[in-house]
Amino acid sequence: MNIFRLAGDMTHLASVLVLLLKIHTIKSCAGVSLKTQELYAIVFATRYLDILTSFVSIYNTLMKLIFLGSSFSIVWYMKYHKTVRRTYDRDQDTFRHWFLMLPCLLLALLIHEKFTFFEVLWTFSLYLEAVAILPQLVLLQRTRNIDNLTGQYIFLLGGYRGFYILNWIYRYFTEPHYVHWITWIAGLVQTLLYADFFYYYFLSWKNNKKLQLPA
């Protein structure tokens, strides 16, 4: 464990807590894409399949349980909670996210480190996570106005993988043979997808204006 990875994990944890807090306290998921939340639930479900078989550390298992629990409860809130579900704008959140999953699955079947069931699903979760934010970013373009909590959620979610990139650089220089191109490229693509959001988020913060994405 290094400071970059810890910062990344804490930023990731903060992002899901901000979202859960928003949905649980103000009982609203306006501006949040259910599609992205469903994709993240699938990302964690396919990434942490080994939670029962391989034990790394208490921290590792605890964080996996938190990410699994939070992502599935956010999906549950948005789909089934009587009050929250009414605030979900389904007619705006129309990204065909199943069309994201198929290319990720095909790519995982083609490019992976080992051709085993777990490894292919794990690689699938990496590719899927890289594009999982797309429905959310499309929704933001459509709804244009972003409330603070949703903006903070996306900012933290984008930031965590940026810290992971620093972690990979650190591990590359400190651990011999630590080379994982698939993870690194997927992580880089994921972070770059947030680039324009970060740009407008920073502008709104600098000019102390409400965050508006261009149409």
């Binding site: 990875r5 994990d9 391989s54 794990w122 651990e175 043979h177």
Partner: peptide, 10 residues
């Protein structure tokens, strides 16, 4: 091993 060093990440 090569495999373990990546699976220790979330």
């Amino acid at each position: 091993s090569k495999d373990d060093d990546l699976k220790d990440e979330l």
